[in-house]
Amino acid sequence: MLAQRFIQLSSRRLQANQPALSKFAAPAAIAARIQARHVAFQPSSSPVQTTPAKPSDAYSILAAQRRLRPVSPHLSIYRPQITWYLSISNRITGSLLSGGLYIFSLAYLASPLFGWHLESASLSEWFGSLNAFAKGGIKFMIAMPFTFHSFNGVRHLVWDVGKELSNRQVQVTGWGVLGISVVSAMVLALLV
């Protein structure tokens, strides 16, 4: 802090005493990360007097400036769109799929320690003992996030190529991804 103040004062003195060297004073102040406050030129004969702001007044000046700034619009004023829902759904399904895989993998590795039976024979026996409605529901709950995340990933790859980027095309492909995800999840759930 003291070094910055020293460079600031010496660059001001250099600029005031030797106007020919003033072109070097500003870069020295910039290199020392010193912010300069430029005063507007006043053509009257009297010099412009500036008074430095007190540190206690700095917060009130900043608060007054913030009141004059425009407020950015919040999401609540916009009409919800399909792209919002698909974007957050893509993130949620990706988190659910990867989180579920990690949790099951850790449980499978820890199952011998705790006496859990997570081997394939036990899981298929448990699943086979369920009624048809429960089986279809479980398969749909697993297939829907998988198909949605997969088809929406293909949609994003198409966007990366630079295709289907107009507003209308984004909406059409969004509804298409949603429809094909539901249909393919139902088909996977109804497979025997």
Rank of each mutant, 00 (worst) to 15 (best):
A134Y: 09
L62A: 15
G94D: 00
T83F: 06
P73S: 12
L101W: 10
N90S: 13
Y59I: 07
S105K: 15
L106W: 10
I61G: 12
V177E: 00
F140I: 04
L109C: 08
H74S: 15
S60H: 14
R69S: 12
L101D: 03
E119L: 04
F114W: 11
S105C: 10
R79L: 09
S166W: 04
A63S: 15
F114P: 01
S72H: 11
A132C: 11
V161P: 01
A121M: 10
Y78H: 08
G179C: 08
G153R: 00
S150E: 04
H74N: 14
Y102D: 03
S129V: 04
S87V: 05
Q65D: 13
Y102G: 12
P145N: 02
S129W: 05
L130C: 04
A110E: 04
S111K: 02
I103L: 14
E125P: 03
V177A: 01
L101A: 14
W116M: 06
T147A: 09
S89A: 13
L106S: 14
V177C: 02
L113R: 15
F114L: 14
F127W: 06
E164H: 14
F114I: 08
N152D: 08
F146A: 06
S124M: 10
A58L: 15
W159C: 01
H149F: 05
G176L: 13
Y108V: 06
E119D: 13
Y85F: 14
M141L: 15
W84G: 07
F146N: 01
V158R: 00
L106Y: 11
R66E: 15
P70A: 06
V154E: 08
W175I: 08
S98L: 15
G137Y: 07
R155P: 00
A107H: 07
L178E: 00
L109Q: 12
Y78F: 14
D160G: 14
G115R: 04
Q171R: 15
T147M: 07
I61Q: 15
L113Y: 12
P70K: 02
A107K: 12
P145Q: 02
A121W: 07
V71T: 14
G136Y: 08
R67V: 09
G115T: 02
L68S: 12
N152L: 03
A134C: 10
L97M: 07
G162N: 03
W175Q: 08
V158Q: 00
G128D: 12
S166A: 07
A64N: 13
L123V: 10
G179Y: 06
S122Y: 04
